[in-house]
Design a protein around this nucleic acid. Structure first.
Lengths: 172, 172
DNA sequence: CGATTTTTTGAATCATATCAACGTACGTGG
DNA sequence: CCACGTACGTTGATATGATTCAAAAAATCG
């Protein structure tokens, strides 16, 4: 979809921060290697993960990228990674894109929207155990790859409680 | 964006159900008049509202519409309404759409995605009071128009608890 | 008006968070 | 290859935000 050949590439180490909550972002990031996360920090200083982006995923604060407003999230590498930078000049104005690109974009957006809608339904109406089980089914490779505390943050519970959930599941 | 002039129109009364959770949907709905909701019912029989769709909004289960899988939500009129039906033959295949339509779609999808992302951040990291206050700022007209219990369901609390929240806010 | 729905109130209970302590695994430098 | 430090995971005790249930009060509607 994006012209990765000409895109600017950046290598980052685990822990490196590409965007800080409250800043206005210039870029979206396409992950070539490694894994990033986007997360919001609440008033109590706790981190809540919005998205994981392993290989071939894009990550950004879409509102900040599109409308140049302060970002609601920070973006940070959770592994040593390599990303392609997506700039507003390449991608901010849809009318410059080819029809073929727009169709690809529409399909990806739709799939993304479906997954995101499901996440909202899960947060509203599923038990935390069910949210965890759904995560393991939807992202089996991430379950292996990520520490428990990050998964806990993504599904909306504390690490301690996810530990309880796992124990209860194991007992069955 | 959609060809509303030729679209099939349907009038429905308050309480009428256009899609039942678990069914495969044929249509998306564009609301000309009135207001609909989409909602999931959990194991305990409780209703959780995914989306409100007042005038000029579209509502559907996108996964069910696109992939012909069972819907995770039901769609129901919360006021007497009039909707235009959007069918898969009109809208299922992006390559049939004109470039201009694709651009409009991309913009609407992006705005929708921004709002949806914000909702997830809210559910993960905001207090229920903050979620309510954000709702009143984001959808001031709906606050007037909708009963408290529906707003409670949307922000993810019980009506009783939203009543408490309102009292606490009023005291300040 | 009366009937139905919505909102409020209060008490008991539950799911999950918090905090602190301990055990475990891991990675890096010596 | 070992030892140490740091990050991660588990456990249990206690605290809290939110739900549940029941009932009364208020608003809405035919």
């Amino acid at each position: 979809m994006l012209n990765h050949k000409t895109a600017q590439i950046k290598k980052i180490v685990k822990g490196e921060i590409l965007l800080k909550q409250g800043e206005i972002t210039k870029y979206g990031y396409f992950v070539n290697r490694g894994c990033l996360k986007s997360y919001a920090v609440d008033n109590a200083g706790k981190e809540h993960i919005m998205q994981f982006a392993p290989e071939n995923w894009m990550i950004s604060d879409l509102d900040s990228f599109t409308n140049q407003v302060p970002s609601l999230v920070s973006i940070e590498a959770i592994e040593d990674s390599e990303v392609s930078l997506i700039s507003r000049s390449d991608f901010g104005d849809f009318s410059k894109l080819e029809k073929k690109t727009l169709i690809e974009l529409a399909i990806k957006s739709r799939n993304n929207m479906i997954a995101t809608n499901k996440r909202i339904i899960g947060l509203l109406s599923w038990s935390s155990e069910k949210r965890y089980l759904d995560f393991t089914e939807t992202y089996p490779t991430l379950v292996q790859r990520l520490p428990l505390k990050l998964i806990a943050s993504y599904i909306g519970v504390t690490p301690e409680y996810l530990s309880d959930i796992r124990r209860k599941i194991a007992k069955k």
